[in-house]
């Protein structure tokens, strides 16, 4: 008999897929569309930029609307509380959602979130009715403070954005999971391989959010399918509860009735 599972819950909404996917960096709009389908993701991230920039506008938005996916706008590129609050408000009007993937960068070198400004911005936006999904570091206390402010979802990084390094600090991620057992936890950024997603789900994370690992693959559509299977496998492994690790070998084949038992 299979163990039953619960769906992914984000601010009261339930989803069957545990993969959130980005819409950037694909070789073409067509490949993006096929990748979104292959991923089986139900949530896609988007952003806002100046209308006179190369690709911002209604054509892209129509492509996304045609997918029927739930949209999660981000505040990528913001470096201050004022910027991030304004961009979140603009996203809410354009995308007609109070969800916001809150990105507030504190360092240009590794695009590390600014934990102090992130807390300040989160407090402001929650008071304005936003449902904040903060992109944060894997710092337990920062995650706890974000939870205290009212975040039901937390998104610590696996590694810096776009590096593909996987989970750099599984101990920290595991500790956050153990200390915040009732929050929805999503590893956001830094994943490069499906095995990284499996590891995150095996640790008990509820989902992963990624973009570059799929869009930057040699065949994004195939990689999107691989990540879909990875989150399914990782979640099933978590629900199934892994065997305890041991320090010494233990035979799996019965030793009772063994012929020629140590006759030499």
């Amino acid at each position: 008999m299979m163990h039953s599972d619960t769906p992914l819950t984000i601010y009261g909404e339930q989803f069957n897929s545990r993969l959130l996917i980005g819409s950037a960096l694909y070789p073409s709009p067509e490949i993006m569309q096929h990748s979104l389908v292959a991923s089986q993701a139900q949530i896609v991230t988007v952003s806002l930029r100046r209308q006179n920039s190369v690709s911002a506008g209604g054509d892209f938005w129509q492509l996304i609307k045609d997918t029927g996916l739930r949209v999660l706008p981000n505040t990528a590129g913001c470096h201050s509380v004022k910027e991030v609050v304004t961009l979140a408000q603009m996203c809410r009007e354009v995308f007609a959602t109070d969800w916001i993937k809150l990105e507030l960068i504190g360092d240009e070198y590794n695009l590390q979130p600014d934990p102090i400004a992130l807390l300040e911005a989160t407090e402001i936006l929650i008071k304005q009715g936003f449902k904040v999904l903060p992109y944060c570091t894997d710092d337990l206390v920062v995650c706890q403070r974000l939870a205290d402010l009212g975040c039901e979802v937390l998104m610590p990084w696996g590694a810096p954005i776009g590096t593909g390094k996987g989970l750099l600090n599984p101990y920290n991620l595991k500790t956050i999971r153990e200390r915040l057992p009732d929050h929805t936890l999503i590893v956001d950024a830094g994943l490069g391989l499906p095995s990284h997603a499996v590891q995150a789900l095996e640790l008990g994370y509820d989902a992963v959010l990624l973009n570059s690992a799929i869009a930057g693959a040699g065949c994004p559509v195939t990689m999107a399918s691989a990540f879909n299977h990875a989150v399914i496998a990782g979640r099933a492994a978590y629900v199934a509860q892994a065997m305890p690790e041991k320090e010494v070998a233990a035979p799996s084949t019965p030793t009772m009735g063994m012929p020629f038992w140590h006759q030499n």
């Binding site: 950037a24 209308q51 920039s53 506008g57 995308f95 570059s212």
Partner: peptide, 10 residues
């Protein structure tokens, strides 16, 4: 004035 429209995002 800043006028912003939807674009790809990660």
């Amino acid at each position: 004035i800043e006028l912003l429209s939807p674009i790809q995002g990660g």
